[in-house]
Design a protein around this nucleic acid. Structure first.
Lengths: 336, 336
DNA sequence: CTGTTAGCGCGTTCAA
DNA sequence: TTGAACGCGCTAACAG
């Protein structure tokens, strides 16, 4: 059929318009002032030829390509999806695009993936990195500009945007305590998750603050089926006296809720249940799930704000920690 | 603090190794045969300098950058997330990365977004484009190589990967009919969604095939709250005689399920309810939601397979339509 | 205000 | 096998 035709270049436009490449470039970028006549002839030449500049050539000259990368352990996590959406839209408003790199929870691939992604982009977002702290500290130094999400890294020269899980758990425990609960079970998240470690700190602090409260930790995970599978341990804790359960996140809570229903355990009658993240589905569960709300897309926007500053050569802006907001719903009730 | 240091280039490596740039390039790309001694000195120079090649320069020379873009109406849709995940992982295994471009359901921005994304990448995936067919036909010609997802485009020179919604709806109606239902309500999706149009065709075909079945269409949407809001219309249809409901997708079904519960309508006792897509949450609802399963990540992988062929200069491979699989669960039951 | 020139960093001829 | 030289497409500096 048709010949594989080479793309048209700025030289073609210049020739057709009868001017120099520099003039075409000026018209293209609106630099300096150009003779209105030239502008018109260049513009019509561009239109006639259907020319569009080579992004690659521009990148080579400028040393940047207006693209950032987000490295994430699992694209299926609603929290990360929300952050990606917020980041993508915020960056787009400044003419930047977002590359996604899903490490599929393979901790060993994280560093290589991050380095490779950074090669292609002007900056990086490391979302809930699972790698050891020492490795992460080394890495952030190599991939700057970079912003870290949901992973504490004290005194590191990196802006961090995250969620105050410690505070969130404490607030949640307070809520349950006010309802009369004194024995609580916490269904934990992935061992590699830093935010799970933070939640556990929240658990410890809550216990310290309220000597009358006891919290047992049972193994869980991060997905629906993890919650479903955790039901057995939760029931054991319930038999042992627990009257309320806090799940690592809403997915775990919803999976657990389902299984508890199958087992004939009334929520919140016999057992109160709360999740974390306040995913859209939370308020649509039966009963509606009490959760700690986290501003997912807002986090993405804040990440972009910090990254943009860094890209522009600005300072490392202050880290920010969002305080989760309690959304008390039907799944938690007074102890009886 | 430290000087803003210019990145090291292949010339630096060549100098340090005492060879020509060409030799370094050869070692880097494993082309031709190079003297083992040179190889070693180059490699140690690379290691010593911490050199890594410029992606931009490579892109300029090769005319490609091993990146593809996926344009999607809404990143929050579980179906698109699954496709993105499958696409991203499949492409990654071939050394390609994925750029995401979320149009936020702004139909008017779709074309510009697609063109801009294509500039930066070697190929494009148009996921459920909302634009008019004529515009889409024109567009696909301009952004080739491209694969279209979930949008029929008869006789177009583009591989299409999609879901047989017509057949899916028919199978779902058959399921309900076997349970004794004769009056059904369909809660429709977004007006701009081509897959909704396909579902409506399925509805029509089902009616034609089963003269004893009547299906009423009520307005809906694509998200949880759309389903919640559609409850009123559904109840009206129920009062009018409908004993079963098919929702545009699982999100709508789940939102509807919630509201029906609040209204004291028993599912499936009074009203059977089915969704579409079989999102992870479907089987965890109360009652578990009957749905039509769609292989989300598999679709992403198939998209990549076709795109890869196209990028390699291969032929336009056959389009493929996945037949949804019925997952009959507790939300649908015999009419009584 | 305009054109000419010199790179940006790399791959790839073409001789040697 | 190796190195020198050119070109990918564009922007920025410098003259004119």
């Amino acid at each position: 059929m048709s010949e594989r035709t080479r793309a048209i270049t700025i030289a073609d436009v210049a020739a057709k318009a009868g001017v120099s490449q520099a003039s075409v470039s000026r018209v293209l970028n609106g630099k300096q002032s150009v003779d209105p006549g030239i502008v018109r002839s260049v513009q019509s030449a561009i239109a006639a030829l259907g020319y569009s500049p080579s992004v690659a050539a521009r990148s080579l000259v400028h040393g940047r390509n207006d693209t950032i990368a987000m490295v994430v352990p699992d694209l299926e996590n609603p929290l990360f999806q929300g952050i990606l959406k917020g980041l993508s839209r915020a960056a787009a408003s400044d003419g930047y695009r977002v590359l996604v790199a899903d490490t599929a929870e393979r901790v060993d691939d994280e560093e290589a993936t991050a380095l490779e992604a950074r090669q292609r982009c002007d900056a990086l977002v490391l979302c809930a990195p699972r790698m050891p702290e020492s490795q992460l500290r080394r890495l952030v130094g190599r991939v700057s500009p970079v912003v870290v999400v949901n992973r504490p890294l004290p005194d590191a020269a990196v802006p961090i945007v995250g969620v105050d899980y410690v505070r969130g758990i404490r607030d949640l425990v307070d809520h349950l305590r006010e309802l009369g609960h004194r024995r609580i079970a916490y269904v934990s998240g992935p061992a590699t998750s830093a935010s799970n470690a933070e939640r556990l700190r929240g658990v410890d602090e809550a216990i310290a603050a309220h000597p009358d409260v006891r919290i047992d930790v049972v193994p869980g995970g991060s997905r629906l089926d993890d919650g479903y599978a955790a039901a057995e341990s939760v029931v054991a804790a319930h038999v042992g006296g627990a009257t309320a359960v806090i799940a690592f996140n809403d997915l775990v809570a919803l999976g657990l809720l389902q299984r508890l229903g199958e087992l004939g355990i009334d929520v919140p009658g016999e057992l109160s249940l709360a999740g974390f993240d306040d995913v859209p589905m939370a308020s649509f569960a039966t009963p509606p799930l009490t959760s700690m709300s986290v501003p997912r897309t807002e986090i993405g926007a804040q990440v972009w704000a910090r990254l943009r500053t860094l890209i522009a050569g600005g300072p490392i802006e202050h880290s920010v920690l969002y305080r989760p907001r309690l959304e008390a719903r039907g799944s938690t009730g007074p102890v009886r």
